[in-house]
Simulated assay, not measured.
Amino acid sequence: MNEIQKLKDENKSLKSVIQKLKNENKKSKSNSVGSDKRVHNERGAGRKERFSDQEKEMMKMYRIQGKTIKEIAEMYSCSVGLIHKIINEQFNLNYEK
């Protein structure tokens, strides 16, 4: 009989621990909702980028050196619009904030 009572007491204490952990879990979930920022395109879906970051930086450097957008587009065999977009990407990010 004494052993049964010990097991019942242990069961009660474990239930209280479980309840405390559930409450902590709820609190942490509610706190992380605002800070949960998903990585854009985390599945890797969609079109892959045509140029690497190094190539994009080179395009920007050519533009700073005085090359025209048309000349850079001919160097990389792509459209003038794409070069313009790549060169002005950094500036567009600043305006969104």
Rank of each mutant, 00 (worst) to 15 (best):
I64E: 12
K85Y: 15
K67I: 02
M61Q: 14
K8C: 03
R50T: 10
D53T: 12
S52M: 11
Y62D: 09
N41A: 08
K29R: 07
N88T: 01
S52C: 09
E96R: 04
L7H: 03
I87D: 02
R63A: 09
K26Q: 15
E3L: 08
L82E: 04
E96C: 03
V33Q: 07
S35V: 12
E71G: 06
G66R: 03
K6H: 07
E89N: 00
M59V: 09
F51I: 00
K29D: 15
K8E: 07
K22V: 06
Q54C: 01
E24V: 08
Y62C: 06
I72L: 10
K97F: 15
N94S: 15
D9R: 07
I72V: 10
S30E: 11
S28E: 15
K48F: 10
D53W: 07
V80F: 05
I86C: 05
K67A: 04
D9P: 00
S13T: 12
N2Q: 05
K27W: 04
N92T: 03
Q19D: 13
Q65T: 02
R43V: 11
G81F: 00
K15Q: 13
E89C: 00
N23Y: 08
K20F: 06
E71V: 02
V80A: 01
S77V: 04
K97V: 12
K8A: 15
R38H: 02
K12C: 01
Y76Q: 06
R47Y: 15
M75K: 05
Q19Y: 02
E24L: 11
K85T: 06
S16Y: 09
I4V: 15
K29S: 11
K15V: 11
K37H: 03
N23F: 11
R38I: 12
V33F: 06
N88V: 00
Y76T: 02
E96A: 04
S32D: 01
N41K: 08
S13H: 13
L14M: 14
I72M: 05
N92F: 12
N92S: 08
C78Y: 02
I83D: 00
E49G: 11
S32F: 09
I18E: 07
K20V: 00
M1D: 05
S16V: 04
K97W: 15
N31M: 13
K8P: 01
K26Y: 04
A73N: 12
I4L: 14
E10G: 08
R43P: 06
K67N: 10
Y95E: 07
E49W: 06
Y76S: 08
G34C: 01
E10L: 10
H84L: 03
I69Q: 10
V33P: 00
N2L: 14
K20T: 00
N94Y: 10
K27F: 04
K60V: 14
I4Q: 08
Q90A: 09
S52I: 09
K26L: 14
K12R: 09
E3S: 07
N41F: 02
N31I: 12
V33A: 13
E89P: 01
V80K: 10
N11G: 05
D53P: 03
S28P: 01
Y95M: 11
A73E: 07
E71W: 05
K15Y: 10
R38K: 10
G66N: 02
I87K: 02
S35F: 12
R50Y: 12
N41W: 07
